[in-house]
Amino acid sequence: MPLHRPETLSEALSLLAGGGRALGGGTDLYPALRDGPPPADLVDLMNVAGLRGVSRDGNGWRIGGATTWTDILRADLPPAFDGLKQASREVGSVQIQNAGTVAGNLCNASPAADGVPALLTLEADVELSSQTGTRRMPLSQFITGPRRTELAQGEILSAIFIPETTGSGAFLKLGARRYLVISIAMVAAVVEIREGLIVSAKLAAGSCAPVAQRLRGLEAQLVGKPAHDAAAIITAHDFPELAPIDDVRAPAEYRRDAVAALTLRTLNAAISKETAHVA
């Protein structure tokens, strides 16, 4: 059972076109095996030149497909990325953060993927590469359902692109214990405040729908309002963007209730940072 360790993207894509399965940090692939053997052909993406790390891309940013959560934590990024950084810290454990990749988190497409809400608030695009070329689409279109994505056979998520982003970010994860926990609900926010008014608000919630969702209805209500009105607006919002379910972690009713509190806190955390930052 070979593990291929290509050093160039074209080599990797050629191996994948031949039926190999992509391996990043292994933090989803190996647990999913349970007691079974590994796939016959694995293509390790962690050695591919240029695939790992965070870099500038014009006015925006590029997160390579082999970038780990620890890489994100250590990267020098503007305050809008604070939510993503907080999410990085909440992924599993240090061990998981050292091995697991952001791209893998997206491709695994768990409804509870820790990275998705923050990347939605950063309006991330994903770049998919295969031997036949690359295509790019918004993250919100990439994940199509629980454990379902637009990724085609032979294709990898080669990069995440984030446009130039102002404002400050925050992220909160709610779980039944402190570490190593799958979230009951989570919320990410990126907010921009000018002279006490919310100029822009991007909010997303995870674990409350088949796929993490932007809270666009709520965002629209918040824009142009004084920051201190946020509580009243969120309290009145009934989160039609979400469709939580009952599972072993919590009933849907609780998720609906908790996500409002989480949203307010996340937004307030982002507002506080933004206010401190702007001041």
């Binding site: 940090g25 933090t27 190996y30 647990p31 599993g92 240090v94 061990q95 091995a99 190593l180």
Partner: peptide, 24 residues
């Protein structure tokens, strides 16, 4: 990767050895 008992250092970084391909 749920219990961390297999934690080893790979190039100085703690990882779960049960989640890493030996070839990596």
């Amino acid at each position: 990767g749920d219990c961390g008992a297999c934690t080893v250092l790979v190039d100085g970084n703690p990882v779960c050895a049960c989640l890493m391909a030996a070839g990596q």
